[in-house]
Design a protein around this nucleic acid. Structure first.
Lengths: 362, 362
DNA sequence: GTGAAAGCGCTAACAA
DNA sequence: TTGTTAGCGCTTTCAC
């Protein structure tokens, strides 16, 4: 392994000069620079990142805590975060907590501040206390997808207005003429402990408020999804549709359960969207690729990732070493979610059509 | 930030002793150990990973190069690799090259050896020369999903017998009684340059060999998938089915295109598996969750990840610092892939049934 | 059992 | 413009 020293020796200068050349600091003569660069190339020198981190007192990576890389939303977010991090000169260490609090804590303990300069968190699976602790220890932490802009978490964060997202979904169904619908509320929070941040609370409330505000419109039933997965949505939808066969549309607080609801409908002989409309939230890639394509409320993932990295950088610059005095807990809000109508929603059948539809079922 | 020194001062010992206590090296008196541990807890000391890495001459992370985290296979593999890495005491830095050679090279240049002790590579998107270069520079590299056990890449690797996978898919179709089928061959290799490692070559060959060996059986057409995605499979399947409406089954060299093929069939009014059987390779999670569930050849992802990490560790231990003399390029082979029949495959209709089926199409 | 000292590879004042 | 000198926080011989 080639070191700075070796390069310096080769070029007939001191390590300091080599360092200066490599990072464009301080003034260096053109001739020397030339010689140094040559030596670098010749020896195939590559700076030792750990050494540099130690000397600089900063690390070249960010840590991204995700609760479960199995949920396709996270890879998508990760991708965006990684891009953003790289433009900021950082690598991204993906810390998969696998929904396990202990694992998350371990990552935080070990990585934060020593291997990573800052921590990005996509979910509140981790108890806030741990996050606050690391923040107070001097490692900036940014929450990436806070769901309630109206209710800051007391930690720097990027918020997305998920209540609005829910409202948009409601409006979409209303616009199509649906008056009797069901809701599938995802809730995978292991650590709910009645905390103010029940995972999908805002998404639910937004939908319920808007939908209920309309004349004649009624949410016939709300079912909880055991898990925020296709399977979870499938099971919940089946139960809901069995209990309330008269609903003409289903709202799910996330795309995966919405996809599951479509499968459930298919298995029950209902055609989507003719017999049943389905709408979700997020607009993960699968939503575009499902059959029929899922109508959903798109959430600005890319933007959120970018903003989160930006915010993290600001926090780092702001608190160079010692962050005495509360540095504040800034909150950024992304642009609004937007409804993306696709093939899984349509006006409800008229009574006439419904009869026909029933006949078609075996 | 608390340092070893501070802890030492607090406990009334020297840093060396603290270090010894923390890593269970050297003999330390029970009483001192007690005091040290106490001080550690009291001060909330956490070792500085970068400093440790520098002092030890080794890093606490592995790098995982993936070509595209957007393809759900990679997150699944990543998950497995991360688990394996953690049991080995390493963090996993996920390096998403986004199918870009330059990005990949940049990661390799910067991370390998200085921030990561070893490199795991899931694809040959990176030119082998770069990988060999880093390996020769002293940072172990392991290829994770080499597709041809019979043709080692000249780099340490974990191989999966994808030729057999293809053969199993063929056998499955044969067993069901299909005699006229089509093949969708994925090929996303940007850097094909006629290299011996055409991305899905083995998967194709295995299928073709086995299927063609059967009497009366014929592969009516092979179409290339432009991209290894649902979309890619959709397009290719449409073209194939238009040109050859008589095939009773489709084989795709990967699950995503297979899923796309199912969508194409649906859009063309064909019912799967009644009018058309579809089989893929890999068994990603989506395969289980699609409607109908996809019949596919499951590949031992978890096992491959585990073996790759094990192999990496061995290489690291074997070549403590200077790896003079070819350390060899070991290859491990996972257990065999296995056919997982699900709902997307069935015996072809008899002529009689086919007629009925045609009638049902609008 | 515990301490002293050197050094991992690099950066960052400050001198020259 | 370049060199000198200290470290960054930790590990690791080797004495004591």
């Amino acid at each position: 392994m080639t070191t700075l020293n070796e390069v310096a020796a080769r070029a007939g200068v001191t390590p300091a000069t080599v360092s200066n050349v490599l990072r464009n600091r301080g003034r260096v003569g053109a001739a020397t620079r030339e010689r140094v660069l040559h030596a670098v190339k010749e020896l195939g020198y590559r700076p030792h990142l750990a050494a540099r981190a130690l000397a600089e007192g900063r690390a070249p990576t960010f840590a991204l805590m995700v609760s479960s890389i199995a949920n396709p939303f996270y890879p998508e977010f990760t991708l965006a975060a990684e891009r953003a991090a790289r433009t900021s000169g950082h690598f991204l260490i993906v810390c998969n907590t696998n929904d396990d609090q202990e694992t998350g804590r371990a990552y935080l303990e070990q990585i934060a501040g020593t291997l990573s300069e800052g921590v990005l968190v996509t979910n509140a699976e981790l108890v806030f206390d741990d996050l606050r602790a690391t923040a107070e220890r001097g490692t900036p932490v940014v929450l990436c997808m806070w769901e309630r802009p109206d209710d800051p978490p007391g930690l720097p964060c990027v918020a997305v207005d998920f209540r609005l997202a829910g409202a948009l979904a409601a409006q979409h169904l209303l616009d199509l003429g649906h008056t009797r619908v069901g809701a599938l509320v995802g809730s995978r929070s292991t650590h709910d402990d009645g905390a103010p941040f029940g995972i999908h609370g805002a998404r639910r409330d937004g939908f319920v408020e808007r939908f209920s505000a309309a004349d004649d419109a009624q949410i016939v039933a709300e079912f909880i999804c055991e898990s925020d997965t296709i399977r979870g949505g499938y099971d919940a939808a089946r139960r809901l549709l069995k209990a309330h066969p008269d609903v003409t549309a289903l709202y799910a607080t996330n795309d995966l359960p919405a996809l599951g609801a479509m499968h459930a409908a298919a298995d029950m002989g209902l055609s989507v969207p003719d017999d049943l409309s389905v709408v979700g939230i997020t607009d993960i890639q699968l939503a575009r690729e499902s059959r029929p394509a899922l109508s959903t409320v798109a959430v600005p993932t890319e933007e959120a990732a970018r903003m989160a990295v930006d915010l993290l950088r600001e926090l780092i610059d702001r608190a160079p070493r010692a962050s005495r005095g509360n540095p504040g807990t800034p909150m950024r809000v992304t642009s609004a979610p937007v409804m993306v109508p696709r093939a899984s929603t349509a006006p409800p059948r008229t009574r006439d059509q419904r009869t026909r539809s029933s006949l078609r079922k075996r």
